[in-house]
C-alpha cells in the first residue's frame, strides 16, 4: 500500500517547463511514477519528454485525471500554485519549492486542512515509495522496498539514514520529507497516523531537528495511538539559541525547541533516540530483528 504516493498517483508537475521542474519531473517519470501532466501558464499544448503541458491545473485535471501535484515554481508564485491545485480538486500537494513566506503558509494551512487535502512541504524533498512512485528530489537509488516508514524534516540527513538502513539490509515502505519550514502542510503526527494505518509499514524511523514542538506532539501521539515501534533521531544538540540553522524552521526560540527537550519527550514516551545517524539505523535494525 505505502502512503501518500503509490501506483494510484497521477502526477501533475506545476512548473514542469522550468529547469528544475523538467529535470526532476522527467526523473520521477523514468522511475515509474505516473506523471500525467505539466502546468505552465502560456505553455499549454507543448510537451516535456512526452508529458503534455497545460495552461491551468483545472485543464490538466480535466484531461488527465491528475490527483497529485508537485510544485516546482519560484517561491513568490508558490502560494498561488498551491491554491490553484487545491481548487482544481487535487488531493495531494507536494511543494518542493522553498522560501515561501510563513504568513502565506499559515493561510494555506488554514485553507487546506478542512478540505482534507494532504500537503508535504514547502521546502521538502518529497515522498518516495520504493518500487512504486517517486515524487520529488529524493535519490531513489539509495533506498530499497521494505517495511520501515521513514519521516523527516530534512533531505540529505534522511538519505544518510536511509543509506545506513539499506546497508543493514532494511528497506522502506515510504520515505516522507515533511519540510524544514516553521509551518508545513503535514506534521510528524499526520504522517505517523498514515504509517500506523498502512499495512506495508511495520516500523517507523522519525528524524527530527531543533525548532517548534512537533516532535514533542509526535511523542505523545506515539504513546497514545501507535502500535508499531518507532525509533527516532534528533539533529541540532550543538545548535546555539536564536540562530537559524539552514532550515527556516530550525531555530531555538528562548528556551523552547531544543534537541535535548525533544529527546527527553520522546524517551519519556518510550521512543528510543539514536545519538547519530548510524546509531538510529542500528536501533531500527534491532527493532526489526526483535520482531522478525
Amino acid at each position: 500500500m505505502a502512503i501518500i504516493v503509490d501506483n494510484e498517483t497521477r502526477l501533475v508537475v506545476q512548473g514542469l517547463t522550468g529547469s528544475e521542474g523538467s529535470f526532476h519531473g522527467t526523473r520521477n517519470k523514468r522511475y515509474g511514477t505516473n506523471v500525467v501532466a505539466g502546468v505552465t501558464p502560456g505553455k499549454g499544448g507543448q510537451d516535456v519528454d512526452g508529458i503534455p503541458v497545460f495552461d491551468t491545473v483545472a485543464d490538466a485535471v480535466a484531461e488527465t485525471h491528475a490527483n497529485t501535484s508537485m510544485i516546482f515554481v519560484p517561491a513568490r508564485f508558490a502560494a498561488d500554485a498551491i491554491y490553484e491545485a487545491v481548487d482544481a480538486g487535487i488531493r495531494t500537494v507536494i511543494c518542493i519549492a522553498e522560501g515561501l513566506p510563513a504568513h502565506e503558509m499559515l493561510r494555506i494551512y488554514a485553507y487546506i486542512r478542512p478540505k482534507g487535502v494532504t500537503m508535504l512541504g514547502p521546502n521538502c524533498p518529497g515522498a518516495l515509495s520504493p518500487g512504486k512512485a517517486n515524487v520529488g528530489i529524493i535519490p531513489a537509488e539509495i533506498f530499497s522496498p521494505g517495511s520501515i516508514g521513514l519521516v523527516s524534516r530534512s533531505g540529505t540527513l534522511t538519505y544518510q539514514i536511509g543509506h545506513e538502513l539499506t546497508q543493514l539490509g532494511l528497506g522502506n515502505s515510504t520515505i516522507v520529507g515533511i519540510g524544514g519550514d516553521p509551518i508545513v502542510g503535514s506534521s510528524f503526527v499526520d504522517v505517523l497516523e498514515k504509517f500506523e494505518a498502512d499495512d506495508e509499514t511495520e516500523y517507523v524511523v522519525m528524524v527530527g531537528e531543533i525548532g517548534g514542538e512537533e516532535e514533542e506532539k509526535a511523542a505523545r501521539f506515539i504513546e497514545a495511538h501507535m502500535t508499531k515501534p518507532v525509533v527516532a533521531y534528533i539533529a541540532g544538540f550543538t545548535a546555539p539559541p536564536g540562530k537559524t540553522m539552514g532550515h527556516a524552521g530550525a531555530i531555538i526560540s528562548g528556551s523552547s525547541g531544543t534537541a535535548e527537550a525533544k529527546k527527553r519527550a520522546l524517551e519519556a514516551c518510550g521512543v528510543r533516540v539514536g545519538t547519530s545517524p548510524t546509531e538510529v539505523a542500528r536501533l531500527a535494525a534491532d527493532v526489526a530483528g526483535a520482531h522478525a
Binding site: S152, S154, G155, L157, V207, E209, A239, M245, S276
Partner: peptide, 17 residues
C-alpha cells in the same frame, strides 16, 4: 562543511560526540 541543513546539524553533533 556539508550538504543539506539536517546533515550539517547532525555533523556538528557527531563532532561533539
Amino acid at each position: 562543511l556539508g550538504n543539506g541543513a539536517g546533515l550539517v546539524m547532525s555533523t556538528l553533533d557527531v563532532i561533539a560526540l
